[in-house]
Design a protein around this nucleic acid. Structure first.
Lengths: 359, 359
DNA sequence: CATTTTTGTTGGATCGATTCAAATTTCGGT
DNA sequence: ACCGAAATTTGAATCGATCCAACAAAAATG
């Protein structure tokens, strides 16, 4: 009873136990962290005292300072926290990260913030041993912020030319070429591209200058891949509409409206994410068009939802889970080296692509 | 260059900056945490020194010990970490928790472990201010473990009679009755129940004793709700097969096999989770049966996937997001009180239920 | 110019543990 | 009973910050 009331006033510390049991701090500490080196009799006495006083066990806050290692990695993004549970790409990635963390018993701390102020603070104050950065919108800012913390970190997506930051990504050019070639070989000649951003906070048709001055080189590379391959088939890429979206519902639909408002409707859409591709399928079907009868679509990413849509999505699959695993491991067993890994992609043909309709 | 090498050897502390800048560590601390009370000239000098020495800013590990508050909540489960990103119910719940955390700038730490040893350690050592417990399998053990930590915690699901633990859940009896009444009113007379566990690690047909001695009273209440209502329609509930699954693919399909192996096939299935209900729809359609033509199904939970299935799922919807929000807030602004909240459910009629087939 | 008030700085105490060299105890062997 | 080795225990130092009472310097007041 008394211990309960006192407990409310001030939590019991290891030192209190030590005093009450008549042993030194050191011994009391050993009872909890290395019980085998304490004489059984003493050990039991201290444990009994702890139990009776309602000691909650060594406080990790104290241990942490001494130990130095938190044993947790932070996963950061500029999206709201719910992004981790909503976005299919993020979810698969998190599964990979989870796996690696589960294997070593490490924890995961989710870090995010809508506004820049808070993001900076959250990154500064996160109790983690390192970061995995989801570099979507605002990725470069995220990297800058994290760099200040001077902890190991890995950027997902090799969108950064900066060779001093560790990163894992896929061969965007090769993946994009695969997608473009597939459609070209099916006879398609009129294309449209649903693009990710070339820089922050922008939607609408991308100008050649926007592409040239791309901040997100991942986006640029994918477009380059598309164009390179299509050129080989004699297609004039300058005429292909490229619409930058924010990779969500609204701007993607706006992009489709804009693309299909023109006279020369495309028979094939190259989407830089499965998310956009799936939205596009939905939009097209809603408009009474047939996929792939009237319009073929190829996505990018390889999220599980793509296999379940009607029609199922043809896509360039990234080894998302594996990327997550590796990213987490890079932090978990960090050796101070900067690593940049480029993973291969896999071309998955499903039902959203077919021969170009006869003129 | 030198600073970089030294930085590798031993991170720079605030005290190092203070010495180098010729101020006390108190002042150096103020420069970072309350810059406005330091004279501009001094402030700039210290900042310059910090910059030049490559100081990463005050280490949260140190601050934490002093401050006492971590500003993060732990979300714990006995499932592997990936559960948070895979399971639809968990995901919606996490969205609610995320929302509450985003609003106050708090972080989320995911805690989990397959084996009991590690779980205990992970809970003991998690750097959090409190816990939200996902009480699925092994929920009671999870509560016991967490209680030892003597931090505030909330159990999701009121499956615990123990009135000394805070918990948030729904009125399981009322929800179950709604589901049962709906089917009975549609003329169904032959039922089967896909049940959650009454105790840990068990699958197969549940015996009356198993139900009586249920550890998970949430499961028991749902069943009680089903049976109470069906009895009112003169249905002999003793004959209704109740199959305990682990709320995943394998055991649910096994349950369906077992249920449909009997002569008296049910025309209506009461599933205690949407997950099982969706698996059941898939299984039935795979067997050439029509839903709801041959068999009607009602789920429980109200996860978003239920609206997207074919046919869309009739279900008892819990206010999952709201539960998550409240749980998180209960920890975030904890006042020492034990709170037990019971939320209402909403009956959502969609396409998976229809009139009983003519004998 | 003396006195108060305001503003800025200092350094010791504290948060709660772990670590490790040194001191002490225990114990087998003679 | 005594010795050295092995097993335990001790207590000071440390981890990296923040807080706060006391003090010093500068500014305002009479």
């Amino acid at each position: 009873m008394a211990s309960l009331l006192e407990g409310q006033a001030r939590p019991i510390r290891l030192a209190d136990i030590a005093k009450a049991a008549g042993v030194s701090h050191g011994t009391a500490s050993n009872v909890f962290s290395r019980p085998e080196i304490v004489r059984a009799e003493v050990r039991e006495r201290v444990k009994a005292v702890a139990e009776q006083m309602g000691y909650a066990g060594p406080d990790p806050k104290g241990r942490l300072l001494r130990a130095g290692k938190v044993n947790a990695i932070g996963v950061a993004t500029t999206e709201p926290l719910s992004y981790f549970f909503d976005d299919p790409f993020a979810r698969v990635m998190m599964a990979g990260i989870s796996e690696a963390c589960d294997a070593t018993g490490a924890g995961i701390a989710l870090v995010s913030a809508a506004n820049q102020e808070k993001l900076a603070w959250n990154i500064q104050s996160a109790l983690v041993d390192g970061f995995v950065l989801f570099c979507i919108e605002g990725g470069s800012r995220l990297v800058d912020l994290t760099r200040e913390r001077r902890l190991p970190f890995v950027a997902l997506e090799l969108g950064f030319q900066d060779e001093t930051v560790s990163a894992i990504g896929v061969d965007n050019v090769a993946g994009a070429r695969l997608a473009a070639r597939h459609l070209a070989e099916l006879g398609h000649r009129r294309f449209a591209v649903l693009s990710l951003g070339f820089a922050d906070n922008r939607t609408g048709f991308a100008t050649p200058e926007a592409v040239r001055s791309a901040v997100y080189t991942g986006t640029r590379d994918r477009l380059a891949g598309y164009f390179e391959e299509l050129s080989r088939f004699g297609i004039d890429t300058a005429k292909i509409p490229v619409y930058e979206t924010e990779n969500e519902e609204k701007s993607t639909r706006a992009g489709l409206e804009a693309i299909f408002a023109t006279g020369e409707r495309p028979t094939a859409i190259l989407a830089m994410s499965d998310r956009m591709a799936l939205i596009a399928i939905d939009w097209l079907i809603g408009r009474g068009l047939n996929v792939p009868g009237d319009v073929s679509i190829v996505g990018f990413d390889g999220v599980p939802d793509g296999a379940l849509s009607t029609p199922p999505l043809t896509t360039i699959a990234q080894p998302i889970t594996e990327i997550g695993r590796r990213a987490a491991r890079m932090i978990l067993d960090h050796d101070g080296a900067v690593r940049r890994e480029t993973m291969g992609v896999e071309f998955v043909v499903r039902g959203s692509t077919g021969p170009a309709p006869k003129a």
